[in-house]
Simulated scan of single mutants.
Amino acid sequence: MKTNSLFKKIFAGSLALVSALTIGTTAFAAKTKIADVSQYQGNINWSKASKDLRMTIIRVKHGNPGDRDYRVDPKRNVNANGAHKYGVPFGQYDFTEFNSSKDAVNDARQFYALSNKNAKFYALDNEKRVSGAKGSEQSYVNAWYSTMRKLTNKPLVYYSYQSYVSLHKINASKFNGSWIANYSKKPNVPTDLWQYSSTGSLSGISGHVDLSRTVNNSKVTSWYTNTPKDTYFTSVSNGQKLRVTRNVNKYKTANLTGKTGSLKYNTIVTAKSIARSTGGTYRIQLSDGSYMTANKSYVQVQ
């Protein structure tokens, strides 16, 4: 009788363990979809979407100031915060309409300034050429890439349609990877991530959504798992010119207390010296005596 009771307990425990493992495996397996989202997906239920998503790529803006159809995506922060809250790794993308290399530089700076600090990587969405643009599309792509590489050491990904890449003979080998759309079959141009559908479905979204699948799984995974840590300036020269790359505040102290003003992205400031907070974090003292972050994600050498 005792032996039978013990057997029943062991058997019941085994079933519980198998059940738990099965549920865990099923839950993990469910997180297989890769979707890109924007304002056109409306109000996303990120609690539900997170059950399906392996990762997501979120739009920040469409075009550049001066473009006829320029707009900042009104859902960029809502979507970034929702994905982050529910543990969905995300990158962000910049839909561009270049008309010159200078335009590409300004576009990259604004895109970076509007991006979310929790983004794991950044993608250039290069699928539309402005009428009247005279330079080569490759030169515009290179200008965007070079500007972004100076702003961040996070992965940079190139996105376009197979037909657009072929038409303009785009070489994206400098990027950390490529993401190509072709809805009929696998792209015949180099790609690590294949956007295969514009009519996909996803929990938490009513209506269609773009879906992608990996071609080079290890490379795509590296975009959101090998995110570099923030680095800080540890020295500056008195009088050195620096460019603010994201909107930041100025403070009375190196502990960043007593706000004295704000600095808009692209503002050029003059450094005086390096200081440290009571916790040891590096700060930049400006020529007016105020202090700002020394995080290189927010400021760069001019």
Rank of each mutant, 00 (worst) to 15 (best):
E97G: 15
R109W: 02
Y158R: 02
W194S: 05
S212C: 15
D107N: 13
N216P: 01
P190A: 14
N106Y: 07
V157T: 06
K174C: 06
G200F: 02
A123T: 10
D210I: 10
N176E: 07
D103M: 02
Q195Y: 05
T199P: 00
N118T: 06
V165A: 12
V165K: 03
T227Y: 09
G204Q: 05
Q195G: 12
N216G: 09
Q110N: 10
S115L: 08
V220Y: 02
Y164L: 05
L156D: 05
V141A: 12
P155E: 07
N99F: 12
S115T: 13
K219S: 13
T221P: 00
D94N: 15
H208S: 15
D103S: 10
V215M: 09
P190F: 13
N118W: 10
A172K: 01
S197F: 08
T147W: 02
D230F: 09
A119E: 10
M148I: 14
S136P: 00
K102A: 15
L114H: 11
K128H: 13
G135A: 11
Y159L: 07
N217Q: 13
K150P: 00
S163Y: 13
H168S: 03
R213V: 14
T96E: 08
A113R: 06
T152K: 05
V157S: 07
N116A: 10
Y183G: 01
G91E: 04
A143C: 02
K128C: 07
R213N: 10
Y140M: 04
V157F: 03
I170H: 10
F98N: 03
D107M: 06
T147N: 06
V165W: 07
T152Q: 09
G135Y: 08
E137C: 11
L211V: 11
T96W: 01
Q110F: 01
T214K: 10
R109T: 07
D192L: 03
A133Q: 04
W223D: 00
L202C: 14
K174S: 15
K102E: 12
P228M: 05
Y196H: 13
V209G: 10
Q92D: 07
Y196I: 07
T225S: 14
I205R: 02
G91Q: 01
D103I: 03
V105G: 06
K219C: 07
K169E: 09
G200S: 05
Y224Q: 05
G135P: 00
F90N: 04
Y93W: 05
Y112D: 02
S178Q: 13
S101T: 15
G91T: 05
A119I: 12
G177H: 11
L202F: 14
T147V: 07
S166R: 15
N188E: 15
W179F: 06
G91L: 08
L114I: 07
V105L: 05
E137S: 11
F121S: 09
A108M: 01
Y93V: 04
H168W: 14
F90I: 03
Q110M: 14
K154W: 04
T221I: 05
S201Q: 12
G207H: 04
W179M: 02
S203Q: 10
V130M: 14
Q92R: 09
